[in-house]
């Protein structure tokens, strides 16, 4: 396992990775609360981006409905906590299966009935929209008027119930991001990862060399959905409020895929780099605009759009492959 993790990784890449990790571990002791929140957002997008990337970047299945899995995870764990006082760590045991069931239904229908490409993407949107409208009418978890977790000022962080200060959330999401990275790295250097790439590249050819493409595409959807639902739990307990209009909205799904696309679809560092770039730049811009007294809704999203345009036109494979070349680190497959 450990050997597989580091096999073929150039020393320079290891050094860069270690440096980044050290900086992230030390960050809460250096930065102020605002920056810590920004870092939490960055890592949140890095994590979700990594999870989405399994489906699109590895197995080539474009999902534009990942907000569905975030929402299912968020609502499940939050409902268990609010209604029964059950810790989110136990809530996971329900949240993951529910999100996986959602993904499995979509995957099964799409792959059995050969709904591919753009049609598949639209199908994923459709299911997220279903959930949005459904949860609007689901009064047990607040319906369209929102679902709220109890908030208080905590002197000590309660990790078991995920109630506490930003620093706890920071280390939690950092751990999740590192774990997701490790999982993706291991997957990519194993049989399943190779099979996914083959399916992404050419599904018919993949079938011709004996790959049960239905099964492996299902694995990708299930894994991606499960991982994304964990981000949902984090989201619920960090923000403490959930509105179907916001959680399941198509623009959430699009936000989730920006980081890996800008960073580099199918790469391991892409989602992380993309999240840093996107959130970092948008916060900087926000600060500048705020400094000039301009506070208009929509500016940030226009900026996202322009970033996306720039990257997709100028660096179609994302920023990371380009950075990696400049740094002299070549990720084996991108």
């Amino acid at each position: 396992m450990i050997g597989q993790m580091f096999e073929g990784v150039p020393a320079r890449a290891l050094a860069c990775g270690a440096l980044l990790l050290a900086a992230l571990l030390a960050a809460p002791y250096v930065v102020n609360d605002y920056l810590l929140t920004v870092l939490i957002i960055i890592l949140y997008y890095a994590y979700t981006g990594q999870a989405w990337n399994i489906m699109m970047g590895f197995a080539g299945q474009l999902s534009l409905g990942h907000a569905l899995y975030v929402g299912l995870g968020a609502y499940t764990a939050a409902a268990f906590y609010v209604h029964f006082g059950i810790s989110p760590w136990i809530g996971i045991l329900a949240a993951i299966p529910i999100a996986i069931a959602g993904g499995a239904i979509i995957g099964f229908l799409a792959f059995r009935f050969r709904v591919g490409g753009v049609y598949f993407a639209i199908l994923t949107i459709a299911f997220a929209e279903f959930a949005r409208v459904g949860f609007d009418h689901f009064n047990w978890v607040g319906g369209s008027s929102g679902f709220f977790l109890p908030v208080a000022n905590y002197a000590v962080s309660d990790l078991w119930n995920l109630r506490g200060k930003p620093m706890m959330f920071y280390y939690l999401i950092l751990a999740m991001t590192v774990l997701a990275f490790v999982i993706c790295r291991l997957l990519l250097t194993s049989r399943i990862g190779y099979f996914w790439l083959a399916i992404r590249e050419d599904e018919e050819a993949a079938r011709a060399i004996g790959i049960d493409t239905f099964r492996y595409k299902m694995y990708a959807v299930i894994l991606s959905a499960g991982m994304t639902s964990l981000a949902g739990i984090f989201f619920a307990f960090f923000y403490n409020n959930l509105f179907p209009e916001q959680v399941f909205h198509i623009s959430r799904s699009i936000e989730l895929i920006l980081a890996p696309i800008i960073g580099g679809v199918g790469t391991l560092f892409g989602p992380i780099l993309g999240a840093f770039l996107l959130t970092g730049l948008s916060e900087t811009m926000h600060a500048i605009l705020y400094g000039f007294g301009i506070d208009i809704p929509g500016v940030k999203q226009v900026f996202y759009g322009l970033c996306l345009l720039f990257v997709v036109i100028v660096l179609p494979h994302g920023v990371w492959p380009w950075v990696a070349r400049v740094l002299g680190i070549k990720e084996r497959r991108s």
Partner: peptide, 11 residues
């Protein structure tokens, strides 16, 4: 991306 710019440009 084009859509994102349009929606929020209008906003």
């Amino acid at each position: 991306a084009v859509a994102l710019v349009m929606v929020n440009g209008l906003l």
